[in-house]
Design a protein around this nucleic acid. Sequence first.
RNA 1: UCCCCGAUAGCUCAAUGGUAGAGCGAGCGGCUGUUAACCGCUAGGUUGUAGGUUCGAGUCCUACUCGGGGAGCCA
Length: 465
Amino acid sequence: MPPWISINEARNASPGTEATLKGWVRTRRDSKAGLSFIALHDGSCFDTFQVVAPSALANYEEEIQKLTTGCAIEVDGTIVESQGKGQAVEMQASAVRVIGWVDNPDTYPVSQKRHTFEYLREVAHLRSRTNTFGAVARVRHCLAMATHRFYHERGFHWIHTPIVTASDCEGAGQMFRVSTLDAVNPPRTPEGGADFTEDFFGKEAHLTVSGQLNVETYCLALTKVYTFGPTFRAENSNTSRHLAEFWMIEPEIAFADLNDNAALAEDFIKYLLKAVLDERGDDMAFFNERIEPGLLEALAHVVESPFERIDYTEAVSLLEKSGKKFEFPVKWGLDLQSEHERWLTEEKIKRPVIVMNYPKDIKAFYMRMNDDEKTVAAMDVLAPRIGEIIGGSQREERLDMLDNRIKEMGLPAENYWWYRDLRRYGTAPHAGFGLGFERFIQFATGMGNIRDVIPFPRTPKNAEF
RNA sequence: UCCCCGAUAGCUCAAUGGUAGAGCGAGCGGCUGUUAACCGCUAGGUUGUAGGUUCGAGUCCUACUCGGGGAGCCA
């Protein structure tokens, strides 16, 4: 058997190369000239590869002519220049071995026709074989690798913050409980509630909603750090940009302020886009053609132009002066609504916008108080189509100020003892942000629903696969 | 969780309260170095679930389930 090469390698092989290809049939077309054309894919690149199977092959009528979409096969043959149009080279097969049949082509869920994404979510175990989901998977991988490369090249350390947390101080929304207690009949406290001292960790434990507080401890030791892992939110969110389980990238830098943070966010986003445009031209051309016309041009524009940075106060003033009728009020002190963010990024600025220095009352306790004592050093990066793609801040490094905020917001100070310790022992200014990985993939590919940029989406009422 | 819309063949959708159809896909045949192939034939249905109105319900009403769009929460 000749050496096994991928389809990506076959496309670049010179005529005369003998090889074995392995993959799945996308389509089969028969010609009465005595041959069949098989379009084969193996995920190594966007394109299929054309295999020409002559009728002289021993199993031609018995097997090759019965191949249908989805069958797994191995093909031995020679790479030759194609006589037809549409491909430079193809494989002239000397043997075709069927590895796995499709037992009922009539009910094969991803037959060779157009399917809606809604339908394909119901067959998530097979949607990976389609053009779109293959392309998304390769782009996702490319962006994950580029993320590690970006931080590694800049001297950051990847910190594996915990998935399970027994700390009560994360405070970013509803959490999933992790427990080994009997759910039906748990041990009881004298008050009648479940007794979590009997639980696995001896206290209530949950899945993390953010690695930030943990990673701050390593930031104030290794200076430049980041996390990249799954996060979990038990919010009952039903939108095209929320998941209950998603991946987040959270860099944290010491001896840095909000402007350093914003610069890092901008560099990071541009680096990722450049990587995917360089490395996944085939998949990106597909997204540009079939998913989001104009995508490539828009992304090139993002890479080339500086991000707009504006203060929250200025954003409010722009919105007030826009003359546009919004459903929700625009007023200093109120958070920006989706429609406001869309107007800023899609109509006014037409590229990503970094909105900075928000009113303290609409932001988290750990964000650093500005000198005006009305705003905190927070920032959101807003992207056209997606909205908030990054949320971050300079952290409050002054213990007295932090304590004030904890008290002001009615939080239990004792839960934050180790977080406060960081401010007692060698505190230093630091800042960081969280980038929603799936939201970034949406931004890069033009995919409209976040459930289609992660292999197995977890959303309210959905964890089938 | 709230507002709006939807659920009919494997998929995408039609069907005035009166016999459930088409396109695509699939199977078979024809044609062709084919490539979104083309032409012909065939099969394929408890109309999301449970009630109700009616002589009669895919169609009207109620509840539920699931899906989509928007909003909130956020990344």
